[in-house]
C-alpha cells in the first residue's frame, strides 16, 4: 500500500499526487513511469514519474481525468492509499550534452517534461521550452518550467494567454531561425507529438517522443503496448517509452489507443465518479 502524502489540484481535472514509495524514489530517472492500480478491482494504468524525492522517499505523479481510473484517482486525497504502485518502469530518457534542446509539452505533460528539461540543462544543454494549453485557465507550472529553461514560450489555442496557436508554430520558427537546434523532445497528447515530429522532420532534427499506448503489465509480458517504429514491432513499456518521432507509425498508435472505446464508455457510465470530484 502506498500512501498519498500530498494532493494538489493544479488546474481543473489535472491533479498532482505525492506518493510514498521510497524504493522507487531511490531509483527513478527522467522519462520513466509507474503502473498504478487503485484497488482489487482496478485496472493497471501507467503514469509518468513527474518528480521524485530520494531523501523523503516519495514520487510525484500528475494526471488528467479522462476516464474511470483517473477519475477514481481524483477522488483520493492525502492520507488515502493506492493498492499497487510499481516502478520505475521503462527506459530513462537519453540525456547528453547535445547543444540546444527544445522541450515541447502539451497539456498535463508540462509536469512530465520537467525532469527531462532539468536533466538536459544539468547536462550542459541550452534548453528552450514550449508549453501549450487549450486556454489560460489550464496553464500550470509556468514558473517552474521557466526556472529549468533558458527560454520559455507559452501558447494557448484560444489566445487567452501567451501566443495564440499551437506549439508547432514557435517550434517551426525556432528551427528556421539562426540558432542550431540539436534535439527536440515532445511530450503530450498523441496528435500533438505527431505534429511536432512532422514539423521537425524537414529540418532533420532528431525528435524524441514519449509514447502512451494502452498497457497491462508494463514489464514486456503481454505485448499490448506494441507499436511500429521503423517498420519493426516494439514494446513501449520495455523498449520505450521514448522513441524517434520520425520513425513512429502514428496512425497505428492512434488506432490501438481506441481499442476499448466502447468498454471505457460503459465503465465510465457505471462508475460513480463522474458526479463531481473531491476538490
Amino acid at each position: 500500500m502506498n500512501q498519498i502524502l500530498l494532493r494538489q489540484d493544479l488546474v481543473p481535472k489535472i491533479h498532482l499526487f505525492k506518493v510514498a514509495a521510497p524504493k522507487i524514489a531511490g531509483k527513478a530517472q527522467a522519462g520513466q513511469f509507474v503502473i498504478v492500480r487503485i484497488d482489487e478491482r482496478g485496472e493497471r494504468i501507467p503514469l509518468t514519474i513527474a518528480d521524485w524525492d530520494r531523501k523523503g522517499g516519495s514520487i510525484t505523479v500528475v494526471f488528467m481525468e479522462v476516464g474511470t481510473t483517473t477519475c477514481r484517482l481524483a477522488q483520493l486525497g492525502a492520507g488515502d492509499s493506492i493498492t499497487d504502485f510499481v516502478g520505475p518502469l521503462g527506459l530513462p530518457t537519453h540525456i547528453e550534452k547535445f547543444g540546444t534542446v527544445v522541450c515541447v509539452a502539451g497539456g498535463f505533460a508540462v509536469a512530465t517534461i520537467m525532469p527531462i528539461a532539468r536533466a538536459m540543462r544539468q547536462a550542459g544543454n541550452r534548453v528552450i521550452s514550449i508549453m501549450g494549453a487549450r486556454s489560460k485557465n489550464l496553464i500550470f507550472w509556468e514558473d517552474e518550467l521557466r526556472r529549468v529553461s533558458d527560454q520559455l514560450i507559452v501558447t494557448t489555442d484560444d489566445g487567452s494567454y501567451g501566443r495564440k496557436g499551437l506549439v508547432t508554430e514557435p517550434l517551426r520558427e525556432l528551427l528556421s531561425g539562426d540558432g542550431k537546434i540539436s534535439r527536440v523532445i515532445a511530450i503530450g497528447p498523441t496528435v500533438m507529438m505527431k505534429f511536432c515530429a512532422k514539423t521537425t522532420e524537414p529540418f532533420g532534427v532528431k525528435t524524441i517522443v514519449s509514447l502512451n499506448p494502452i498497457m497491462v503489465d508494463g514489464t514486456g509480458m503481454c505485448g499490448c503496448c506494441r507499436v511500429a517504429v521503423s517498420g519493426a514491432t516494439r514494446f513501449v513499456c520495455v523498449d520505450g517509452p521514448d522513441f524517434d518521432g520520425h520513425q513512429v507509425d502514428w496512425d497505428l498508435l492512434m488506432a490501438r489507443q481506441r481499442i476499448y472505446l466502447d468498454e471505457e464508455k460503459r465503465s465510465f457510465e457505471q462508475c460513480q465518479c463522474q458526479h463531481g470530484t473531491k476538490s
Binding site: 478491482r41 482496478g42 485496472e43 474511470t68 509480458m221 503481454c222 505485448g223 506494441r226 468498454e263 471505457e264
Partner: peptide
Amino acid sequence: ENLNGIYSANEFLTRVNLMKAYQFPEYDTP
C-alpha cells in the same frame, strides 16, 4: 499482426485471469 483485436495469448489470458475481465465492468479491465 498489430491490428486491433489481435492479442498475444499472454495479454488475453492476463486480462481474463489476472485482471478478471470476465467480470467486467465490476472489474475494470476490459
